[in-house]
Amino acid sequence: MNRMIEAYQKIVAPEGLKERIEGQIMQDGQIDVPKRKAQWLGSGWQRASAIALMTACLFAAVVGVGKWYRGHEGENLPGICLAMEEGEILGARHLPVHLVSEQTEHVSAISWLTESTKAAVFQVTSEQPVTFRAEIDCLSVYDEEKKRWTDCKNELMIESDGILCLLFPTMGEDDVFYIQMSSAGKESRIEIVYDETAAEYKAAYRTKLSE
């Protein structure tokens, strides 16, 4: 262990790094400040609506309004399908890894990437905008025109007919992962944990329908 510490201590910052950082900080006023999440969510009423929805969901979660429905367990990543009806999240469930296409009443899984990327693409056909929030990992959307994934965000809002991809690329075996969704005042939460006995990820999801 001492040898490891000694080797570790030998790692030093390269010459010029301090000066480079100092220089960067000196001109910090000219650096583009990253956009705030609220800006990313849209503008005007969209932002206000998103914030209001999230606040309502947080309030509902804290005070325990509504009743929880505990759904299926034991289906593997990578995808989660959201069942929606007029903006209301009725439930969520995992889809089989090798599924190519599946229709539900309001959500279609339109394609899958490889299993190793742990990704799935969904077509959300709800008529209401939906807010998705991933507390640890991130959400990306695929830009059909630019043929690339957008930057990874841990918070995003998509309009109806948006294409949503839920990614779980970095989960550790002992991590617990939550995705919280809200739409039209309804809240759903999905909890994904690693089952050591079964050596696989499992989803325990519950939908909380506000009353």
């Binding site: 570790y8 201590q9 790692i11 030093v12 910052a13 390269p14 790094l17 480079r20 950082i21 960067q24 900080i25 910090d28 650096i31």
Partner: peptide, 24 residues
Amino acid sequence: LYRLCYSILLVREDAEDAVQDVFL
């Protein structure tokens, strides 16, 4: 910070950028 970032990222340039970002 450089030691830490380098040990996590294992790429010198990324570690330098990370240290800079932390100070910023």
